[in-house]
């Protein structure tokens, strides 16, 4: 058996085992280095690709900005506090929320019992 025959090892054999062991450690770690390097390159490439995609999308947005029409805005901006039914005309959602809270307070009724149809800025 290898182990039992090597237990009473001679100096020359010990030198060979020592050298072989050192080489094996280097071999193992060099292979691991190769694997990690490849893995790292793959990750860096993937990250670069994702970054390039994001940059291209940003550039495209800058070149062709999508400006919504007033009607689109009117359709899209709905205050969540009124179950999506409240229409805001030239009013920020934050301002609308504040107005709704003031109205509820003045009327002495809970906000969830009131129904707001629309809020429009009087110019």
């Amino acid at each position: 058996m290898l182990a039992s025959s090597l237990d009473a090892i001679g100096i020359l054999d010990a030198g060979i085992v020592a050298l072989l062991g050192y080489v094996v450690v280097f071999f193992g770690l060099i292979l691991l280095m190769g694997v990690i390097t490849i893995m790292g390159k793959a990750f860096v490439a993937a990250e670069q690709k994702a970054a390039q995609k994001a940059a291209a999308a940003k550039e495209a947005m800058a070149a062709n900005p999508i400006v919504p029409t007033f009607a689109e805005l009117e359709r899209s901006i709905k205050a969540p506090g009124s179950a999506g039914q409240l229409k805001l005309h030239d009013v920020e959602p934050k301002t609308a929320a504040m107005l709704m809270a003031i109205v509820a307070n003045q009327m002495g009724k809970p906000l969830n019992e009131l129904r707001f149809i629309s809020i429009k800025e009087v110019k």
Binding site: I9, G10, I11, A14, G15, V17, A18, L19, G21, Y22, V25, F26, G28, L29, I30, L32, M33, I36
Partner: peptide
């Protein structure tokens, strides 16, 4: 990783020394 490998030199030199 190469430095981690190089620094195992003492393991094998001490092994050889112990046999001696």
């Amino acid at each position: 990783l190469l430095l981690g490998a190089a620094a195992q030199l003492g393991v094998f030199v001490a092994f050889f020394g112990a046999i001696c």
